[in-house]
Computed example of a mutant assay.
Amino acid sequence: MTSPIPDDGIRRSKTGIPLPGPERPSRPDWALDETDLHKSMDSVPLFMSSLPEDASDNPLIQALQDLAYDGTPEEVAENFKNQGNECFKQGKKFYKDALLFYTNGLEVFCKDDKLNETLYVNRAACNLHFGNYRKVLTDCAHALKLNPKNVKALFRSAKALFALEMFPEALDCCEHALLNDPDNQPVKDEQAKIKAEFERREKIRIEKELREQKIREKKLLIEGALEKRGIRTAATPGFKPDHPHEIQLDQELNQLTVPTFFLYPEHNESDLIQAFNEQDTIGEQLAEIFYEAAPWDPEHKYKPETVQTYFETEDQGGNIGLMKVGLNVKFLTVLTHKKHVLRDGLARFIVVPKEDTQWKKDWLAKYGK
């Protein structure tokens, strides 16, 4: 026979021991969740580890907050400091709460300089974790104003300055910290790290400056050589060369070499000569180019003696023309011609067959010839 169910709804044995079964009532709504007690306690204002976003709408939470400010400013600030320290000790997950507690402590504006100094330094530790380096420096500056010998403030300032790549200032903070605490190993380690990175960056900076200085000096020498020879130059706005070659000056021989294009419009082909020496003749350069037949000239029709070479002229008004160049003409003679312009650091020659063809007549007609 089934045991009668008492008024409390719990079925028991004859000896009074509660028995399992569907008749056992569920836990009341106000009971804490026994499977996640920590989470449940965090929902109770008295046990909250951090405040919810709608805290201002909750009268109970507001009442508990008012209790936090009960006491003298020094007592309240001390209480916030201790709460912040407890949060900080629990790990990174609670640093945000710690930062809030330290801020609350500072906003009390107590008259205890030592306590305020600690609150600033502790808040700086939180901001350092979050990467708020400017705030770290501001908090540490306040702490150092209260106590210029605060090693923690100097140490955290050094770490923030290092992160901001302000290496001399970071080293200065380390030096001041070690003056007050010569055996502080963390400061020594930080100092060594900053010094190593600073020296590495300085080496890179100096090497870069030397490279740039050499480039500037080289450019000035080349500009001087061009001007001395009377070579006209010009730059096309927005022009970017599709090759890495530049005008070079052999200072020992006092000779220029210029990257030069030889264009073959009949076949829509070209050759780039990386360094055409100003003392070489047009014929010498063509002999090198046509020593072997080009893929586009399998019959080897293009030879120094079977082609005609031209360069484009440009007068002061910008009018373009065409001038024939003999095989024995030196490159320098072309460069210094009054109608030749060395544009964008490149020389250009146009090479066409000597024989008269309809293509050649049409091509010359473009230049009014």
Rank of each mutant, 00 (worst) to 15 (best):
V108A: 00
E117H: 15
K39H: 14
P59I: 03
S26M: 11
Q62S: 09
L60T: 13
E86S: 15
S40T: 06
V44H: 13
P59K: 05
S49G: 04
Q90G: 12
K93R: 14
V44R: 13
E117Q: 14
N127D: 02
E53S: 07
G84A: 00
L64T: 06
G105Y: 02
T72I: 09
C87K: 03
C87Y: 04
L67V: 11
D33L: 08
D97F: 04
M41Y: 14
D70C: 13
E86I: 14
L60V: 11
V76D: 02
D33W: 09
S26R: 15
D36P: 02
A31N: 12
V108W: 00
E74N: 09
F47A: 10
D29Y: 10
L106K: 06
A98S: 12
A55W: 09
R27K: 15
D36A: 01
E23H: 14
A55G: 04
D57Q: 08
L46K: 15
L60Y: 11
P45L: 08
M41K: 15
F88G: 04
P73I: 08
D113C: 12
Y102F: 08
S40V: 02
L99K: 05
L60R: 11
L106A: 06
E34H: 01
D112N: 13
M48V: 10
K89E: 11
C110P: 08
